[in-house]
Design a protein around this nucleic acid. Structure first.
Lengths: 212, 212
DNA sequence: CTTGACAAGCGACCGTTGGTCGCTATATAA
DNA sequence: TTATATAGCGACCAACGGTCGCTTGTCAAG
């Protein structure tokens, strides 16, 4: 950008998302701690202090990235819910949707997950808001299923937390036991049916729905 | 310690665990990032550079703490396995055992979980070793259950990862939906039996085993 | 009792970090 | 032409994790 002009809100937003892209790439490669604002600024071809015109702190880059991505995901989840009346299928689709979050986001997501209690008030609030929104959206599916009698009575908040966190076990492992999609299908099988061999001695693997 | 004496290995170990205690307390309170080596040294009543005689880096304090705690836990788990032949009960006991890890460890555990990919080679290896040992110990329970026909055929590595990570959902939430023990019981109910209402219309809550 | 080896402990220092501030340079509005 | 506003930056700051060589005290050997 030339020096004397005034940036339109669109240009500012574009610059911000450009910075986020660069930051996410570096963070995914070297971790959050070891990624410096200088590095990000260099790659974005600006002085470090200019970077601070777009984001007040390093933490804010992570929070902003998470916020934007989750706004997007929540929108998608609402569409899924509107189009899939079967609770168990709806859950599968929601989880498969979350699996599509690009790899670059994973480190930053994990980092926020671990560090969120110790961020500044403002960031903690922003994260809480977006996370609760996602949580509550999925919760409606569980509660809808319970109301219909498809799901048994259970602690729906707990179920949602377990489901969301289980995505991390699938995506964030150094020792995957199958493709991410297969692991996800089996994860949902477990959530729906458990691992007990309750149908007697058949011991058949449960049906996969999306996996190959 | 007076200056001129030579520390016995036991004294060294005691000093190390004293430092770990202080560090864990600070980290649980302020987060890993915001806990400085100076602070730890001050509280341990030594100069910062003396601290580095006991731990090569700040990361090592976290790795060491995790290592020691998990060695202890793994030992306990072996005892549980030896004394509980029923796989599903054995799982419950193992998870309840993990729930007893003191709160101070939780932040550091979470932090290591998030950051482990970006630690120095040595620390990564040490964490991997201890984590795999814990993982594999629990895996024997799953596989034993499958062999007996108590559990259906499943991805045992995945199940173990899901179980261990689910502990984080229980313990590391700002919005608990019940006591930790109740949440844990329900979590294991889900893993064993799922959330589908497969027994028809009864819709009874599943039996808790340890919870009040 | 003296001396020398050794180790606990520390003060001063280093490069790098996240973050701040006031200046410069330029495009637009009057 | 001038005044205003702002994109952008260089220089700076305190605090960080980490290093190094010196001091200080102990014990064992002579």
């Amino acid at each position: 950008m030339p020096k004397g002009i005034t940036l339109t809100p669109e240009q500012q937003a574009a610059r911000r998302s450009e910075i986020v892209d660069i930051a996410l790439r570096l963070i995914a490669e070297n971790g959050f701690q070891k990624t410096s604002m200088r590095e990000i600024a260099d790659l974005a071809k600006m002085g470090k202090s200019s970077l601070y015109d777009f984001f007040k702190t390093k933490d804010e880059i992570a929070v902003y990235a998470m916020e934007k991505k989750f706004e997007e995901i929540i929108e998608q989840v609402h569409r899924i819910i509107d189009n899939e009346p079967l609770p168990e299928l709806c859950l599968r689709k929601i989880m498969h949707n979350q699996l599509k979050v690009p790899h670059q986001y994973r480190t930053v997501l994990m980092w926020l997950h671990a560090e969120s209690d110790y961020l500044e008030e403002e960031y903690r609030k922003r994260l809480k808001t977006i996370r609760y929104e996602y949580h509550n959206t999925i919760k409606t599916v569980i509660e809808g299923g319970v109301a219909k009698g498809v799901f048994r009575k259970t602690d729906s908040d707990l179920v949602v937390r377990l489901l969301i966190n289980s995505m991390l076990s699938i995506v964030y492992t150094s020792r995957p036991s199958a493709s991410e999609e297969k692991m996800l299908d089996e994860t949902i099988n477990i959530f729906l049916h458990g691992i007990m061999n309750e149908g007697g001695e058949k011991n058949e693997p449960l049906y996969p729905v999306f996996g190959a």
